[in-house]
Simulated assay, not measured.
Amino acid sequence: MIDVVVVGGGPVGLYLAALLLQQGVSVRVLERRTEPDTHSRAIGIHPPSLEALDRIGVASGLVNEGVRIRRGVAIGGGVEVAGMSFDSVSGRFPFVLSVPQVLTEAALERRVVALDGEAIIRGATVTGIHDDGSAVAVDVVTACGKSRIHASLAVAADGVRSTIRQLLAIPAPLRTYQDRYLMGDFADGTAFGPDAALFLEFPGIVESFPLPGAMRRWVARLPGTMPDAPSAGSLARIVRERTGIAVDAGTNSMVSSFGVRSRLVKRMVHGRTSLIGDAAHEISPIGGQGMNLGWLDAAELAPLILNRLTHTDCGADLRSFERHRLRAAAKAVRQSEINMALGRPVPRPLWHVRNRLIGSAASVAAINSRVAARFTMH
């Protein structure tokens, strides 16, 4: 019997596995994908997460691979409305790191493999989970057939469609929003350099973030009529119409559209199984908090797992963990709702008023610093 089985080999599951392996805990990570995902996906790593990632020795390598976003600017009608510096948000990491998720996962996987070359089991589909009060048994199907893995504890880090959450019939009320977005990565032909740019235009927001390799991500809130299929040309056209910036569709390396949902479980700890990351809380990608929330879940859960493995009674600590992390997730949901509201289409007269109010608020140093801290999850 192993100590901990982690269901889900994405960034959150891999991070937790590395934390535990460093402490001599035996771990198996069950990942349905047979190969790593090559999609750039999430790109923003906030300062608290960099501090967490530093605990397993991968932060410095990621910082070297990524782009350090130290400043964000809000633009409306071609005029800078507000600027925001992240210099004061952290002593060690005074920036948001932009790095494609594929590189982040690769760094995490390398660390896990270095600690235990047999820890990750790919092509593993979980079909059942059983908790007898003293151990957990997880039913798995792989290319080699069916098997059952016995562990002292289980952690579900298997994403928004969590198999474990469904198998355990854990309530997780779902809310959907009207907002839809189109996202794509293109060669960077702007003069923004390492700055993030938010275009607060009356037809809807356009967001722009630097990426490694002289690339840039563009995200636009879609109008009521969505293109038949997401395309680089559609996104380039929206960016040009709203910002005046010409994006070369021919340089596109990724394009996708997405809607917005939020979901919070009522409980994150169920017997000997815990849920973390998107399995426990799904929030809007706008603001880039989802992956970061999962890492902070894992960082807080890891010492409690160590205590449970020594048969220490940590029921009160687990309840405190659950309350704290669910409050953090609820706060992130509220922040994402504010972000989405600011990016929705508004009539032109209200657009002028809104942008003036944003500019006035941002000119107050205390407010500016507080907003910067909220955006970077401090």
Rank of each mutant, 00 (worst) to 15 (best):
M183F: 15
G72I: 11
R344P: 01
A114L: 12
A236K: 05
R70Q: 12
P212R: 02
V265H: 00
S85N: 11
L167Y: 01
E118C: 12
A42L: 14
H352Y: 12
E282H: 08
K146G: 12
N64Y: 10
F202W: 14
R122T: 04
R221D: 07
D228M: 12
D297M: 04
R28E: 05
L198S: 04
A17Q: 03
L222F: 05
V333S: 05
I164Q: 03
G83V: 11
F199M: 06
L182H: 06
G224T: 07
P94M: 10
L62K: 03
R240Q: 13
L53W: 06
R28S: 02
D317L: 08
H46F: 06
A119Y: 00
F321E: 00
A220Y: 01
G66T: 11
T163V: 14
P173L: 08
L304Y: 03
I283Q: 01
G66F: 10
P212H: 05
E65A: 14
V113Q: 09
G204I: 03
Q101A: 13
P347C: 07
L53C: 06
V126T: 02
E118W: 10
G91R: 13
H130A: 14
I69G: 01
A332R: 05
L211Q: 04
G189L: 15
R261L: 09
R237M: 13
V79K: 11
M268S: 02
I245T: 09
R111Q: 09
R55H: 11
V136C: 08
L309R: 15
N368R: 11
I69S: 02
Q101N: 09
Q22I: 07
G91A: 14
V7C: 05
K331S: 12
L318W: 00
V112E: 05
R237I: 07
D317P: 01
L167A: 09
L153V: 12
T125K: 12
G159M: 11
A361S: 13
S134I: 11
E65Q: 15
G78V: 10
I245S: 09
T243Y: 08
H130I: 05
S274C: 14
S253Q: 15
Q22K: 15
A17G: 05
L97Y: 06
L115Y: 09
L21K: 04
D158Y: 04
S147R: 02
I283E: 00
V138I: 13
A169W: 06
H270F: 02
L200F: 13
